[in-house]
């Protein structure tokens, strides 16, 4: 059996597959599919410090080979998260990545500190790139905002920080480099593209929030190229995501330079997908006679 384990910022993941934030809930609804203990890491839906109801519906709609979502990150706040979700995530025995966001840098920082203090998280993922919040420009789309927030949070936590980037920039590799210089230990590449659908009968936008983030197989080649070009510029590990619908899509990310991968919307299409990706990767390595997945990270560059 080939070794699937990888290390990100000193944290060892038993395999490189995890859910993309916001697409997998830790509930008994998944009991017949697989246990999160089989994943490489567990990641929560982004939380904010305080309760937030989320956007008005409709929040999701199908797009060609993908979907638009304008969920707007409903959150019960950090207190509820620490009481109800975090212990569950910790209980699976795999690394815990806590995804956080803030409306202001103070709020963001405070949330990072509270999560750090619990001692129950292995890494923090900063969602700097949600396209569904209407409070100004996303952190990840402005060089200075990105640098400042990553630096501020990296300095106020002892946990390794993953910066989640936005594809809606001129040069994502440069944004990756900025996050690295600001102190990020890893990058999540990437969040969704903003898009919209108009109902030609009502002549109005379908989504309650007008626009939403596009994800799914439609964005996969864009995401693979983003990982590829970012890998050339940075020296910190990359978590690749965007449109993984099979183990083959995940292997492409690894070859492009990702150390680990996250599966997003396809969890909705096939609730077994993450396990199928892990098994498929394992078979692939075995058939290629590769003993260690780390040997093929970035292989497409060589």
């Amino acid at each position: 059996m080939s070794d699937l384990s990888v290390t990100i910022a000193g944290v060892r993941l038993p395999n490189p597959v995890m859910p993309a934030s916001g697409t997998y809930d830790y509930s008994e609804r998944h009991d017949n599919f697989f246990s999160p203990a089989e994943l490489g890491a567990v990641v929560n839906k982004t939380i904010f410090l305080n309760h937030k109801p989320g956007n008005k519906p409709p929040r999701v709609y199908e797009a060609p080979c993908g979907m638009l979502n304008a969920i707007g990150i409903p959150t019960a706040g950090v207190k509820d998260f620490i009481e109800n979700t975090l212990p569950l995530m910790r209980g699976y025995g795999v690394p815990v990545i806590v995804s956080i966001a803030g409306n202001t840098s103070e709020e963001f920082c405070k949330l990072a500190e509270i999560i750090t203090e619990t001692g129950k998280a292995d890494m923090l993922e900063l969602n700097l790139s949600c396209p569904n919040l209407n409070e100004g420009v996303e952190w990840a789309r402005d060089k200075k905002l990105l640098y400042d927030i990553v630096k501020l949070i990296s300095e106020s936590t002892t946990l390794p920080v993953i910066a989640k980037l936005s594809p809606m920039v001129t040069d994502i590799a440069e944004m990756g480099l900025i996050a690295e210089e600001a102190g990020a230990s890893a990058l999540a590449v990437f969040n969704t593209y903003r898009g919209m659908v108009i109902d030609i009968n009502t002549m109005k936008p379908v989504l309650g929030n007008i626009a939403g983030g596009l994800s799914g197989p439609a964005i996969h080649p864009l995401a693979v190229y983003s990982v590829y070009s970012t890998y050339k510029r940075v020296s910190i590990p990359i978590i690749g995501m965007g449109g993984i619908a099979s183990w083959k899509d995940a292997v492409e990310f690894i070859l492009a330079g990702a150390t680990a991968v996250a599966v997003g919307m396809y969890n909705f299409v096939n609730p077994m997908i993450m396990i199928e990706v892990i098994e498929g990767m394992s078979r692939y390595l075995h058939e290629k006679g590769i003993s260690n997945i780390r040997d093929i990270v970035g292989k497409a560059h060589r």
Partner: peptide, 9 residues
């Protein structure tokens, strides 16, 4: 259809 996406609000 099972509480993961928060879509069906």
């Amino acid at each position: 259809g099972m509480g993961d996406c928060h879509g069906c609000a």
